[in-house]
Design a protein around this nucleic acid. Structure first.
Lengths: 168, 168
DNA sequence: CCATATTGCTATGAAAATCATAGTAACAAG
DNA sequence: CTTGTTACTATGATTTTCATAGCAATATGG
């Protein structure tokens, strides 16, 4: 034998399994990253995540269906939408920050340097990687932080955008 | 046009993208969940995650290759291995806890109840869902917590194990 | 000894997802 | 009336996943 019943994971009480049916996918997480980075347009999301349009459309539709994202008209004629995080979507922030902390610590050689640096607005100092500010020790919320891209990461993103535009 | 160069994400400075190449997959996260739940045997991991053996073998191999998991012989003749988290794997704990918090809060109706309750050993009280103990306010580490399954969730897992054994 | 159970997988073919590439729709601007 | 912009959809090849089955190496019970 091999498999049991289908635990499509909405059949379980486990919150991790439940969450994974929504965000258990590379593209979905990258789309969310872009939305948190305040990139709300389809093109930008596609360019920075590196996905095909189908991948991005599919994830955005699913995220909308799952209540993490809303579409907002920013232009009628031609009709154009921006994608924004809902409260449920915004609440995903701590997961992304935890993932970031793990990625910075365990998926990079030290010489590569950070992608982003966050400043904790409450104390005005660097927030570091953890769930509490490394400078003042208070738990950090998204609203209390400003993130700034390091020059290297900014250049990387600019280059990606240029490369994307070049092929259109 | 449609796609740009391949950002296989080890080509980026972004720690989220880097992390996702390792753990950006439903099965991988469920396997990690089981390892954190101290289920170290192939069968248990398969039964509780609900995957096919190939899915589980593939994830365990990849997790080993990525340095999150080590195989440990627990029986020669017949040769049998247990899967254990490395330091890198253990470090993933905050991500899982953040995912748990989000899942409990946003992927469940209130009446369903929790899957687990953690006690913060430092203060002896409930740790809650956040990165800091809801009782004493200190940041919680995995070593400072004991998790207990709620009866309902325990029954669910027992049932899954029985169902699994029944089909073998 | 010999049949059955245990554990940890591998094999196989069908179904579904993903990829790269190309193209379309609906306008705006010059 | 041609070119550009934005947000997709279409298509066919490739890759992954799924469900089902089976196997290898022993332990265990009779």
């Amino acid at each position: 034998m091999t498999k049991m019943k289908d635990n499509t994971a909405d059949q379980t009480l486990c919150p991790v399994a439940r969450a994974e049916t929504v965000v258990g996918d590379r593209w979905t997480v990258l789309v969310l990253r872009e939305l948190f980075a305040r990139n709300h347009r389809f093109e930008e999301i596609q360019a920075q995540s590196g996905g095909t349009p189908q991948m991005i459309t599919a994830r955005l539709k699913k995220l909308e269906a799952d209540g993490l994202v809303t579409r907002r008209v920013y232009n009628k004629r031609p009709l154009r939408h921006e994608y924004h995080l809902t409260e449920k979507g915004e609440a995903f922030f701590p997961v992304l920050m935890a993932l970031r902390a793990w990625g910075e610590t365990w998926c990079k050689s030290p010489r590569e340097g950070r992608a982003m640096n966050y400043t904790h607005l409450v104390c005005g100092k660097p927030a570091g990687l953890g769930p509490v500010c490394e400078s003042c020790g208070e738990p950090v919320r998204r609203a209390d932080m400003v993130g700034e891209r390091t020059p290297k990461y900014q250049r990387e993103r600019d280059a990606r955008w240029e490369a994307f535009k070049a092929t259109r």
